[in-house]
Design a protein around this nucleic acid. Structure first.
Lengths: 110, 110
DNA sequence: ACAATATTTAAGTATATACCTAAATATCAT
DNA sequence: ATGATATTTAGGTATATACTTAAATATTGT
């Protein structure tokens, strides 16, 4: 398989740090692209592309107001990520999981 | 910024579907590379590379036994992902978030 | 219609990804 | 040591990423 597009699923979409920052920035309040660009310190074009990715996976909604386009985070798709991590939650807490006991607890061999 | 390596953080590491499958496969029981390759239907080499990425971010531990190398998932680093999603949990549930009311609730404009 | 503002799209660059095949390394059994 | 088995590393391919700059597309005010 060739590398998959960031637009193909939520996990890919949130892999980028700038996109995660955007989701936080747009959580409380819808904002136009220009403000996002200022926040991230990159060009309008780059922000526009990131927002486009987020929009394709449903992580932001947008609304044109005048000549500006307001974006706001929609968190619903994150539930998939939450669910995936939570499924493994039992493992974070007690280290005594179902590992066959032919392996002991030493450090990794390099 | 150029694209970041998958080894740079957990979010990147779990973006790939095959790597997520591996984490599930290696959750309960440590297994050698060969079994993983059979499970995923790709070559040893490809699996070895994926496991190497997961190891670099601490998502698997490994242990050599004889000529095999057993890998097992370590879920601790997933807590970062969990925490990030959970921080936004209030938003999934009630749609009445702090959006300024100059935007209404219609569908997105395309 | 015209200029200014806000955003998107197009085209380009350097680097990373997700594989593969083939060669290299490690371990075990003889 | 020799050969078989298990895994990693090296080298290669096609495609994707994360930007950039410049051109194209709204939208608004005059």
């Amino acid at each position: 398989m060739p590398p998959r597009k960031a637009t193909s699923d939520v996990f890919h979409a949130i892999a980028d740090a700038n996109r995660r920052t955007l989701l936080g920035f747009l959580a409380q309040k819808a904002r136009p692209v220009g403000e996002c660009a200022k926040e991230l310190g990159i060009t309008y074009a780059a922000v526009s592309q990131h927002l486009s990715v987020l929009h394709e996976v449903g992580l932001v909604e947008r609304k044109s107001l005048g000549r500006q386009r307001y974006y706001r985070t929609r968190f619903e798709p994150l539930q998939e990520v939450y669910d995936w991590t939570v499924a493994y939650r039992p493992f974070w807490q007690n280290r005594l999981d179902a590992l066959g006991n032919y392996l002991d607890k030493e450090e990794d061999s390099e």
